[in-house]
């Protein structure tokens, strides 16, 4: 009778097994994969996608979607960099970070507001935001990279005790999100709204509030990713982050979250993020051309979801 539950476990083990198999294969195929420096490198690379994926997990759980992530990352990065000139070094680190985060959250608020109050489909709203945020990033930066960032900020992309700081952000965000979805009332409401919106309303849940929350949170995560990215590339790049939303959504879906909402977990998303990161890294190590890498990645995304559906059908 507990078939569905067992399958979801199987599914979770399924990605874990795929991840271990890929890891084992790469360890055997290349000498450099299983080294501290390479794994640290992978961790650094997946962090930004990880932060975005955690954010968009919330949106996908409610049955929505956020296509504006990549553009919001660029806009937040540009805004952050604008406030991070060394001339302003007397200012606390706080200001550029806050500016970046707020920019992301504001975009999310606009997305959420249009989805809930305006009753426009999330696909359309966030598609619009994708273009608007990209345009704003170009306007704010004058179309050029915003360079000359304070070293105190770019240090955010560095290490503490050998651990990349972006990884710490990712882990913190993931753990917090995991606890939130499992333990908090609002977290439960996210699942209920995605599982059956009408039923959630009839049960007394404010569906609009829940949706607004997930879009703001997702925007906030995009803001954080923008700050981290700006620190890493030491500039605010108005053209950065193109198609980041697709990588994030792919990771969430590989992690078992249903695009129609209501089913999924942050743990699955984290595994999906790592799997994509490891595969990218492995293909790099094996010197596979970046053209082929894209093909391989696409096949894996569709393949993972196809396997998932086959399992679901039994």
């Amino acid at each position: 009778m507990n078939l569905r539950l067992d399958r979801s476990l199987l599914h979770r083990f399924g990605i874990l097994l795929v991840l271990l198999a890929v890891g084992l294969g790469l360890s055997l195929a290349t000498e450099s994969f299983l080294t501290v420096s390479n794994l640290t490198n992978v961790a650094r690379q997946v962090s930004i996608n990880g932060i975005l994926a955690v954010g968009v997990t919330f949106v996908l759980l409610t049955g929505g979607v956020d296509l504006s992530l990549g553009s919001v990352v660029a806009l937040s990065g540009v805004v952050c960099a604008t406030f991070a000139h060394p001339a302003a070094d007397g200012h606390p680190l706080f200001l550029p970070i806050a500016a970046g985060l707020l920019t992301g959250a504001a975009c999310g608020l606009l997305n959420g507001g249009l989805v809930t109050k305006g009753k426009v489909a999330p696909f359309i709203v966030t598609l619009g935001m994708m273009t608007v945020a990209r345009g704003l990033a170009l306007i704010v930066s004058g179309g050029r990279p915003v360079a000359d960032m304070s070293e105190r900020l770019t240090a955010l992309a560095g290490d503490v005790g050998g651990v990349p700081i972006p990884l710490l952000f990712f882990v913190t965000v993931a753990v917090a999100a995991w606890i939130f979805l499992r333990r908090f009332r609002l977290g439960r409401h996210v699942y209920a709204v995605g599982g059956n919106e009408q039923a959630a309303r009839a049960a007394g849940i404010s569906v609009a509030r829940v949706k607004l929350f997930v879009y703001v949170l997702c925007g906030l995560m995009a803001g954080l990713a923008g700050v981290v990215l700006a620190a890493r590339i030491t500039t605010g790049q108005p053209n950065a982050g193109v198609a980041y939303e697709l990588d994030a959504i792919a990771a969430v879906v590989i992690g078992g979250t249903s695009l129609s909402g209501g089913i999924g977990s942050v743990a699955g998303t984290v595994l999906g993020v790592i799997l994509i990161g490891v595969i990218n890294n492995g293909l790099d190590l094996m010197s596979v051309s970046s053209y082929y890498q894209q093909v391989v990645k696409g096949v894996i995304i569709v393949g993972a979801v196809w396997l998932d559906r086959r399992q679901a059908r039994g």
């Binding site: 009332r185 439960r188 409401h189 699942y191 209920a192 599982g195 059956n196 009408q198 039923a199 959630a200 309303r201 009839a202 049960a203 007394g204 849940i205 209501g262 089913i263």
Partner: peptide, 25 residues
Amino acid sequence: TEDRKGQGIVPALPIRENITLSALG
């Protein structure tokens, strides 16, 4: 509700979470 599937249950959630949905507060 009369519309058990449409406005009543959240099918993917367990019985526990369905029962407590209105009373989580």
